[in-house]
Computed example of a mutant assay.
Amino acid sequence: MRYSILLSFGPTRPEQVVPFANLVKWTAAERLWQGQGMVLESHHLMTWLAGLGIRVPAGFGVSLMPFRSPYQAAVEARSVALATGHPVVAGFGPGSASIQTGLLGRPYPSQLTACREYVQAVRGLLTGRPVELSGAYHNLAANLLPTPAPPVSVGLGVLRPKMAALAGAVADVAITWMGSAEYVGGTLIPAIRGAERDLPEPAKVTAIVPVALSGPDRDVTALATAACGSHAQLPHYRDTLRRAGIEVSGERTGADAMRLVDGGVFLYGTVDEIHKRLDEYRDAGVDEVVLNATGVGLAHGPRAAARDLLEILTAIPGEARTKGEP
């Protein structure tokens, strides 16, 4: 299993990202992941770093489909691969119903159809061949200008079994979020592996996992709330958690936060305790785990988040410290 890191805060200046990119350069971290950039655009940050001379593999998990057309998505992902000189994982998701309504005028009547069309369009464009698509949500007749570039893997954000099956059918990577190792291994991965797939290689599984080291200045309830509270308020996340046996009120309470800790969604403890819980993802069949210290970043600042990530990465078992090693 490979280890990567998620940018643990929303930067307002690009230089704030440098310490996290350097963690990827200097440690066993495979890739620097970002979610949807709401202040500084995520792809622009990676090309800014590349221009500074800090070129590291990038992952986007996930970029929200309503923000960009499939063509623009393919251009941006390939641009990052060209600028960094490294392979890219470009993950996409439909976003919440409120985001879809705000940007598109209404939610997608079928989330699965919209995602299928989007992923297939982006994957097709990245092959360099012309793409003709007349779909329910996306229409396209175009191709990217051909140029040699590092590969871009197209991912799909996965919360529930139907989206997991779709990722298993059409995506290169299935990207899970707020899923315990038990839920990922027992529910999502069987759906991914059971899908009918025409692509030559099976879909890889990347799990983005919220983590925080314990300490005398740490409040686990506050950290779990900061990391996961806003997501747990949304209906589709509450339904996902319910499927995993975790009932939350969606009211951003301390009780909800502790249910996420007790349910294995938010990992809190010493370095050794964190690694024991991360090993459960390996045992579940996850190919890559992305350490998400957002709770620490929001509660204690980016430096504290970077220190947590460094301690966890430094303690990776010796045989797994080589980048790219399974």
Rank of each mutant, 00 (worst) to 15 (best):
R242D: 14
P150F: 01
R282K: 14
P210T: 06
A50L: 00
A203W: 02
A136Q: 14
L32T: 04
V220A: 04
L82I: 04
G53H: 05
L52C: 00
G51Y: 01
S96W: 05
V158C: 14
C228A: 08
T176Q: 12
L23G: 05
P216M: 08
V209S: 03
A181D: 08
W48Y: 04
Y71T: 15
Y137H: 13
F9W: 08
E273S: 06
P109T: 08
P161R: 09
Y137N: 13
V261M: 07
P87Y: 00
A164C: 09
D308F: 04
E288D: 15
D272L: 03
Q36P: 09
I316N: 05
A203M: 09
V220S: 03
M258K: 14
S4R: 08
G186A: 11
T27R: 06
V286H: 12
P11N: 07
V205R: 06
V261W: 01
V265A: 15
P216D: 14
L278W: 06
H138S: 11
H236W: 08
A195K: 02
V209K: 03
A58G: 02
H44I: 05
V18E: 02
R252M: 15
A315W: 00
P302F: 01
R303V: 11
P148S: 10
F266N: 14
V39R: 07
H43L: 05
M258F: 08
F60K: 00
R68H: 11
V184C: 06
S96E: 09
P94E: 14
G264L: 10
R123S: 01
T101Q: 13
H231V: 12
A114T: 09
K276C: 14
E319Q: 12
A284S: 14
N292V: 02
Q36A: 11
G245A: 13
A28S: 13
L241N: 10
A306V: 05
V75C: 07
S63G: 12
E273F: 02
P57N: 12
A226W: 02
R243L: 15
L52H: 01
A181S: 13
R123A: 11
E201W: 07
G318T: 12
L144H: 05
F67W: 12
L213M: 11
S96K: 03
R307G: 08
R13W: 00
R307S: 13
A305I: 04
A136W: 07
A142K: 09
E196F: 02
S42E: 05
V296W: 01
V18P: 00
I189Q: 04
G85I: 10
R55A: 04
A141S: 15
G297P: 06
I208K: 01
T322M: 12
K204R: 15
V122N: 06
A195F: 03
D262W: 07
L103P: 06
S69V: 06
L145V: 13
I312M: 04
N139P: 08
Q34L: 13
A174H: 02
K204Q: 14
H275K: 09
D272A: 02
L260R: 13
T206Q: 03
F20C: 04
